[in-house]
């Protein structure tokens, strides 16, 4: 993994994914280590994403690394019409690794082809966000003590949600059973179901929360956004259907945990937050350890 860019979750083999998750365990035990004292890391956020940027910057700072970069492109030469190629080639000279987020899909793959340093994709439009996937997997492994043979429920916008798509691909290495809960307009795309068919993995589709949720090991919630609907009336009909409430947790398994990539709007009722099964805030903390593992592994330090 040394010196190799991380653009898409498919860039890592199962073995490499497991190695990152093992390293993240070490960082959770000891998040403050002077490992990046001699490194400069650029965080280039061509579109703002405060949460992701701060998570990366926290990961770097806790390891003693220096950070250069910008949090949105409005004050940079990109605004003057500079090409992505020129921006990346120039900034490559100033750092050892580039973390980038960009609204254009495929921008991170392209950047990895023109940069002289490795690229870590922190989100390229609706395409990929692999560090989110790895932190989701870390959270699953930590709470279930395994990644194998789990039953994962994915809820909400399964059509456009890149986090659920990447998680599905990554978890399909581990004999996962999937349950998809979504409105008809936002169903899991056929290409992902075909992927599961080809691997012989089981999946079930529902249009609302079902009694089967009692079988879930993980409930992965996502936002259902109004702008995804062609018909606003459809949105009004379903907007309260995909909301998780405390009373729905009564018959769920003891080990069940609720994940959410955050930010949440109203899809998890606040009365769930105090429940033992709510894991989304710890999940965000796990992002710091996972990113420490990713950065040190690419820089060849771990």
């Amino acid at each position: 993994m040394k010196n190799r860019s991380l653009v898409s979750i498919a860039d890592y083999s199962k073995k490499e994914v497991l190695r990152i998750l093992e390293l993240a365990v070490e960082f959770e035990k000891n998040p403050y280590q002077q490992l990046l004292n001699n490194n400069v890391i650029a965080t280039l956020f061509f579109e703002p994403s405060t949460r992701t940027r701060l998570s990366f910057e926290s990961a770097i700072s806790r390891l003693g690394g220096k950070i250069i970069g910008f949090s949105d492109s409005s004050s940079t030469s990109v605004q003057k019409g500079e090409s992505l190629k020129d921006t990346i080639k120039t900034i490559s000279n100033y750092c050892d690794l580039i973390v980038m987020r960009h609204p254009i899909e495929g921008s991170a793959r392209y950047a990895s082809e023109v940069a002289s340093v490795p690229i870590v994709n922190a989100g390229d439009g609706a395409n990929q966000h692999p560090t989110q996937t790895l932190l989701d997997m870390y959270s699953i492994k930590k709470t279930q003590n395994t990644l194998d043979n789990l039953n994962i429920f994915m809820v909400g916008d399964l059509k456009y949600g890149r986090t659920v798509h990447s998680l599905l691909i990554a978890m399909s290495y581990f004999n996962t059973t999937f349950n998809f809960i979504s409105p008809k307009e936002l169903k899991m795309p056929a290409v992902y179901k075909l992927h599961l068919d080809n691997l012989g993995l089981k999946y079930y589709e529902h249009t609302d929360f079902t009694e089967y949720i009692s079988e879930a090991d993980i409930v992965y919630m996502t936002r259902v956004q109004k702008e995804r609907f062609s018909d606003p009336i459809e949105y009004e009909k379903v907007k309260n259907v995909y909301v998780l409430r405390k009373h729905m947790l009564e018959k769920t398994k003891k080990n069940m945990k609720i994940l959410h990539p955050l930010p949440r709007v109203n899809e998890i009722n606040e009365d769930v937050d105090e429940n033992m099964k709510a894991y989304y805030f710890t999940q965000a903390l796990n992002g710091v350890y996972t990113r420490q593992a990713i950065l040190t592994s690419i820089l060849g330090i771990k």
């Binding site: 898409s8 090409s83 992505l84 190629k85 254009i104 899909e105 495929g106 921008s107 793959r109 392209y110 390229d124 439009g125 395409n127 990929q128």
Partner: peptide
């Protein structure tokens, strides 16, 4: 959006389905 040559992987030859190397 930028001056980048397209590149595809052919995922189906009969039906002609091309997967973009960049945006997938």
């Amino acid at each position: 959006n930028e001056n980048v040559k397209t590149r595809f992987y052919v995922v189906s030859k009969e039906k002609v389905a091309l997967k973009c190397h960049y945006c997938e």
